[in-house]
Nucleic acid binder design. Structure first.
Lengths: 143, 143
DNA sequence: TCACACACCTCAAGCGCTTGAACACAAGCA
DNA sequence: TGCTTGTGTTCAAGCGCTTGAGGTGTGTGA
């Protein structure tokens, strides 16, 4: 098995089929080969690139940065440090994002507790839950 | 101070000014009061709602779900359980997202190590780093 | 052999914002 | 008094996809 359908690639790389077509449209990948009836056939090299881009995308990297990354692949030696820095910058973004997600999780759970107390018409629990909401909101940086 | 400008609200609630205008356009919030020269003036009730919606948004809740949430505020007693469940469903999504972010972080760092090794023309380190990339990619569920 | 499912195709529109252009008003300074 | 600065306004276009409509080609079962 040395070629894959768009469906295979979507599953393996975690991108949707329309996204794969879109990336080809804008020249971020491909051009991808076609079979006799016009269906796309992805090869191993396509998969490699798409896998890497998919990770970048999942971390919030812009299409512009993905283009840079791809372009840099051509002349590895000169751009290695730049590639490393691009990846590390986005690693930092992810770290910050994880912290933010924890804060949001706390807020959501606290707020759910408020509604749960309301559902059980438990005024005491509701008051306590409100307190937790306020604290959670502080971590979110607003309210 | 019992009214706020759009700028204040954007800062306090973590939404951009255009987003606040957009939410008003589509009827998710407001209509917001205006001063003599047409500038928006948000009051405490607006802030309450916007703060809650902002959290929902930050956790990936769709505008449709936000509308539901807002509509349910009107008849609290009947919908308390629904509100709680909406929030808890999204808390679960966040938990999954945090796990995914950790996987992406591992991948980015591993890949950065590969480029760092290349930058230093260190073949041994590069080979080790590739191994780490492969393991990290496994956690991402593809490659 | 004909019907049907199914996986793919293209093209257009929609979504949830963001960005940019062009303008209005209010306060502070030369 | 006019000029600049700052903060707001509206409207239109762009971004990065997603969704949906409508069509094509291949394979299987009756």
């Amino acid at each position: 098995m040395d070629v894959w359908t768009i469906r295979d690639v979507a599953r393996r790389c975690g991108l949707s089929e329309p996204t794969l077509r879109y990336y080809e449209d804008i020249g971020l990948i491909g051009p991808i080969g076609r079979d006799a009836s016009g269906h796309r056939q992805y090869d191993a090299a396509d998969l490699d690139l798409i896998g890497a881009l998919s990770c970048l995308r999942a971390t919030g990297v812009s299409i512009g940065d993905m283009r840079t990354y791809k372009a840099n692949l051509a002349n590895r030696e000169e751009t290695a440090a730049e590639q490393r820095d691009l990846l590390l910058r986005h690693a930092e973004r992810i770290e910050a994002e994880i912290v933010a997600q924890h804060a949001r999780l706390g807020y959501l759970r606290a707020k759910a507790a408020v509604w749960d107390a309301r559902d059980h018409a438990d005024g005491v629990a509701e008051a306590e839950a409100w307190q937790a909401v306020k604290e959670a909101a502080q971590h979110l940086g607003f309210h």
